[in-house]
Design a protein around this nucleic acid. Sequence first.
DNA 1: TCTGGGGTCCTAGGACCC
DNA 2: TCTGGGGTCCTAGGACCC
Length: 398
Amino acid sequence: MDAFFASVELLRYPQLKGLPVVIGGGRRPADDALAQAYGASERIPVEAFPRLRDYVGRGVITTATYAARQFGVGSAMGMMKAARLCPQAIVLPVDFDEVRRYSRLFKDTIMEIAPLMEDRGVDEVYIDFTEVPGGQREGGRSLARLIQRSIFDRTGLSCSIGVAPNKLIAKMASEFNKPNGISIVHDSDLQTLIWPLACRKINGIGPKSEAKLLALNIRSIGELAACAPDWLIQHFGQATGAWMHEAAWGRDDRPVITHSEPVSMSRETTFERDLHPVRDRSELGAIFTSLCERVAADLQRKGYRGRTIGIKLRYEDFRSLTRDQTLEQTTDDARTIRQAAGQLLKRVPLDRRLRLLGVRVGSLLKAGAAADDARDDDTAALSPDPAPQPAAPSEQLF
DNA sequence: TCTGGGGTCCTAGGACCC
DNA sequence: TCTGGGGTCCTAGGACCC
C-alpha cells in the first residue's frame, strides 16, 4: 500500500494533487496558523504552503508523492538532505490520528471480505485467500479487484496488491505495479520475474546484508539462488544462510498470523537540539519523566504490564546504547518505571551531549494475567534495594 | 545542515541450575 | 576432584521493517 500516508494527508488538500509533496518532519506551529487563516483546507492556495527549502529541523520524511520521488526524495531521508534535492516541494505534517483512522477502515474493509489477515503495520497486511469463496477465480485477480474497489469506496485510497503462493513472493509482487496495481506471480515465474531483482528486494535483506552480498559479488536473487547453501551458511551463519537460500528459491512456509501479542512498548524522543546531561539537567529530567508517564499510559490504556524496564540513549555522535533491568514484578506504574529507569541511567556515561532519550517496558503480560503476581507493585522497587526512597534525590544527574 | 519513532527477532556471553 | 553437558534467564547490541 505505497504512498498510503501521502494519500491520507492529500485527501484533505486536493489542490496539491500531482505536485511534489513530502510528509513528515517535526512540529510546525505554522501549519495550524495556515489552516486557521483560510478556514477550509481546500481553500488554502498552493503558494501558501510551506516549502522544503524553508524547513529547519532534524526530522525525516515519512513519505513523498510520486512527483516528489522523481527528484530522488523518499521515505526515511533527512529533511535537510531532501531540501537540497527538491527545495520547491511542499511540506505537510503527519496527522497520526487521521492515519490510524484510515488504517482501521482499510483493515476492517479487508477483514469483511477475507478474515484471515495479518497486520503488518499501518499500511500493510498479508491476506490468506485460500478459503475465501471465489478466492481462486482468475488466479486470485477477481478477489484482489474486489478488495481494491471496496477500499477505494470506503476510504478514497488506492492500494497495490500482489498475489502469490506465499508471503515472501506476494510482498515482492505487490511492488510490481505501483500505484494501484494487481500482480499475480506463480511459482513458474520465479526465474523470469524474481531472479532478475536485486537481493535487497527480499523482505529481510537490508542494507547491511546487501553490502555483504555485493562484496561477495552477488547482486541479483538469481545469483543468490546459484550459491550453495553451505557456502551461504559459512558467510552468514546457520539460520540466515539457510534462510537466504530458501528465499532465493521463492520458498516460504510462514503462515498468515491473525493474532499476536505485543512484546514491548516504548517511547523515545529526539530533541530539537542536543542536550547536555549536566547543563540541561532539568530539561532532560522533565523529558525523561514524561517518557515514563507516556509508556505507563500506553500500558494502562492497552491493558498490559511489563517486568523489564529499559532505557535508550543516543549521543550527539549518533552512537546509541541501551540498558535494561528486569524487576521482580510486572508494573504499569509511571513512578515505578521512572525509578527503575533512573537507576539504569547511573550505569551509563553522561559526559557527552545527547540527541535522544527513550524508555521501554518489555516482558509484557496482559494486565489480567499479570495481576496475580503484581498485586501491590506501587511500592515494588528494584530487587537489590527495595528500600523506599524519594525518586528525585536518588538520581545524581537527572 | 545528515540520520524519526515504534516495533520484532536474532545472537552471544555470563550466571545459575541440574 | 575434575570434566562436561544442557537448559533457562538476563543483558547488550544490532539488523531489519513499516
